[in-house]
Design a protein around this nucleic acid. Sequence first.
DNA 1: ATAATTCAGGACAATTTTGTCCTGAATAGA
DNA 2: TCTATTCAGGACAAAATTGTCCTGAATTAT
Lengths: 144, 144
Amino acid sequence: MFSKATEYALRATIYIAQHTTEDSKCRIDDIARGIDAPVSFTAKILQALRKDEKVINSISGPNGGFYITDKCRKKPVRAILDAMGEGEVLEKCVLGLKKCSNTSPCPMHSDYKEIKKKLLRLFEDRTIQDLADDKGMFLKLGKK
Amino acid sequence: MFSKATEYALRATIYIAQHTTEDSKCRIDDIARGIDAPVSFTAKILQALRKDEKVINSISGPNGGFYITDKCRKKPVRAILDAMGEGEVLEKCVLGLKKCSNTSPCPMHSDYKEIKKKLLRLFEDRTIQDLADDKGMFLKLGKK
DNA sequence: ATAATTCAGGACAATTTTGTCCTGAATAGA
DNA sequence: TCTATTCAGGACAAAATTGTCCTGAATTAT
């Protein structure tokens, strides 16, 4: 569904929302270990999340690291996708047709439209904090 | 959602189902033009669809080309995904977690599960022929 | 001021995906 | 049989994605 980079971004954001406050931040290597992702690649992804769309924050130096503000916690999960440049995935045609639309539908359009609508709602209604709160019985972000 | 190769595969299969019978086949370059895909890359994809899982057929020589049998027309659209090695896409975790399951769910699992179920149904219930039959008002497979 | 810690950001490398090209095999018709 | 047509399949190339590494800047404490 999403690129690896975006999967890591989703996991990292959840991790950060679960493990930090504005006072107690966490370092890249903790995050990377916590989500089973390569450290340097994670660094690059966290930079993207920190940029304009600003999903997370960071500060350098001792006791520095990444954290997420209360304001950002309230953002929809979709903000992560947008920051990674994959927001469009939720809207494009299954067959990859540029001009597929209600007035010019591909053979899968009408059925797939309903699914996209649900997907969009999933990513737009739920906030980052919602995901962090949802600590099910097992909530291991790692592979194992 | 899917790779470009798989998008082309879906488009190509629909194209073939709409434009050929076992008597009148069509050539790679017609197919490629009809679905707005590069010719040589399309050739490679059509080979994959022709292989074991056999979604389509072909014969060489003059008046040769690609076609699809009645039997293959009845296969679910999912057969195309499987032939392209992307069947798994419909089942994996949004966060990319290997061990995400009902007993060990990620924070998106329960919501996303319902969407995957609908996606699966979409690709398993509808046949290739269904797609070929669905000639809406506008059914242009090309980009424009 | 200096040293230690931690992120920022760019250059680089590996891998995968996407795409091209060429030779050979199969088929049909003259 | 000979030629023209069309697919088969592998080698190769380009581009995108994924991943690594290094230098520098910011911050903290001494």
